[in-house]
Every structure is written in C-alpha cells, then in structure tokens.
Simulated assay, not measured.
Amino acid sequence: MRRAIRAMPDERPEIDGVADLLTMRPGVDSVPVAARVDLVPGLDSEGIALVSERIKEAVGDRWREADQVFLDITEALPHPGR
C-alpha cells in the first residue's frame, strides 16, 4: 500500500510528489493513512479540492481497510530547469 501511494505521481499528473506518508494498523480491518501531497503549481482552490477528493477515493477504492485518509495538500516548489 505504501509503495503504491508513493507511486501516485506516476499515475496522476496533477501530483508532483508524496512528501510524507504515515500509516498505522490499529485494528485488523483499519489502516488510517496520512500523507503530505505536493501538487503541481498553478491549480486553483477548486482544482485542489477535486484532486484531494480523487486521491481519497482512489486510496479508499483500492484498499477498503484504508478507512480514514487524511491529506495535507501543498503546492510543489518549482523545479529548477522546468
């Protein structure tokens, strides 16, 4: 699960990177996920909200045990040379 979440930037062009990722297993059927996700620069607030919901849905759909997904959405710093 952790590897796949960290690989989300490869699958979703609006995600620049997953900076921090925390998971824990408090029970057999529950895995809360907390992540700091850097989005590509230039998205407006509506775009950020849509991307956030898509990420939560994608994680929840793929892993039912990821019953709580907490995201800290940030805008990625521009990369030199881009």
Results as ranks from 00 to 15, higher is better:
residue 78 P to G: 01
residue 14 E to D: 14
residue 2 R to C: 00
residue 33 V to M: 06
residue 29 D to L: 07
residue 50 L to S: 12
residue 29 D to F: 06
residue 25 R to A: 12
residue 47 G to W: 02
residue 4 A to C: 07
residue 67 D to E: 08
residue 16 D to I: 00
residue 51 V to P: 02
residue 17 G to S: 15
residue 7 A to S: 15
residue 15 I to M: 05
residue 4 A to P: 00
residue 62 R to F: 07
residue 23 T to D: 06
residue 77 L to K: 13
residue 56 K to W: 01
residue 13 P to D: 14
residue 12 R to T: 10
residue 77 L to F: 09
residue 14 E to T: 10
residue 39 L to Q: 03
residue 28 V to A: 13
residue 9 P to Y: 08
residue 77 L to S: 14
residue 81 G to N: 10
residue 62 R to H: 13
residue 77 L to C: 09
residue 35 A to F: 02
residue 19 A to S: 07
residue 40 V to T: 10
residue 75 E to L: 12
residue 4 A to W: 15
residue 64 R to P: 14
residue 32 P to Q: 04
residue 66 A to H: 08
residue 76 A to P: 02
residue 13 P to E: 14
residue 77 L to M: 12
residue 39 L to E: 08
residue 17 G to W: 04
residue 72 D to K: 07
residue 7 A to C: 09
residue 68 Q to I: 12
residue 30 S to Y: 01
residue 50 L to W: 04
residue 46 E to Y: 04
residue 25 R to C: 03
residue 47 G to V: 02
residue 36 R to M: 13
residue 54 R to C: 05
residue 22 L to H: 13
residue 41 P to S: 08
residue 37 V to S: 02
residue 76 A to D: 07
residue 11 E to G: 07
residue 33 V to T: 06
residue 2 R to M: 06
residue 60 G to H: 12
residue 26 P to R: 05
residue 23 T to Q: 08
residue 16 D to S: 13
residue 78 P to M: 02
residue 78 P to K: 01
residue 41 P to A: 09
residue 1 M to W: 09
residue 74 T to W: 01
residue 30 S to W: 01
residue 9 P to A: 11
residue 60 G to F: 01
residue 57 E to Q: 14
residue 13 P to W: 03
